[in-house]
Amino acid sequence: MRLRTLEYFVRETFSSIRHNGLMGFASMSTVALSLLILGLFLIMVLNLNHMASTLESQVQITVYLEDSVSNAGITRLANEFADMEGVKKVTYVDKKQAMERFKQRLGEQQGLLTALENTNPLPNSFEIQVDKPERIKMLAPEISELPGVENARFGQEVVEQLFTLTKIVRIGGVVLILFLALAAIFIIANTIRLTVFARRREVSIMKYVGATDWFIRWPFLLEGMVLGLAGAFIAVLLLAEAYSALLSQAQATLAFLPLIPRQPFLTQVSAVLLASGTAIGALGSAISLRKFLDV
């Protein structure tokens, strides 16, 4: 392609956007809105994912031992656990430590413990962390079977609910995002159809003087891409502001919430949105051009 031709395309694109100012603005806003919702959902899904995997990675098996197990038995069990596939970390918590933790958790209500006098009903235990949360379900029953083990527990229900929830959010997010993208494509297609319609005389003259199909298509395609990109840009600016605000709010009041830090997350989301905006614009144009340029 000649440089001059490229210059011609760019000139045509922007003069067309100028001439159809209102329509251009309308479609840009719609793309911005669609991508804004798309972006919000993307951020939500990614954050939920992040939360889910944070929680998942915190899930561990707690193994309660029978009081009769000797120190040698405890060491043997520790080695046995450590040798199991997928086990990352084995921590021994003896009765005393368990009581200390319990006291801490009770905080100001420690007085309750005086009722126990000096007995300690808490068992010795192991905390086992594994590499993949899915592995817990297999390991826990296996460990329960070992001699000296009273039982092995993990937040079975919580983990399973978490898995279902993240799955629902992921699938729901993908479906919603697809619908929004389709809507945006449809809107762009409509706008480009209008610009092509407004310029059909020009298009027919171009055909009579021997312009190739691609020569005619490019300015419209570029117009769709510019509108899509501009819309995406607006959405990205709004989202970046909103997310930064959310993060500083969360830090002040809900510090435990495991939100994804600002960078490089926002840059990645922005890149995705800008690319989608451009692609949506191009696709929208392509769809309306297919029908309209068959002269």
């Binding site: 001439h19 020009e202 003259i205 021997g210 190739t212």
Partner: peptide, 19 residues
Amino acid sequence: PYLRRSLGIVFQDYRLLPQ
């Protein structure tokens, strides 16, 4: 398009671009 490049076409209604 390449056929049309070797031709010149004139219509009754001129078909000029007003802008």
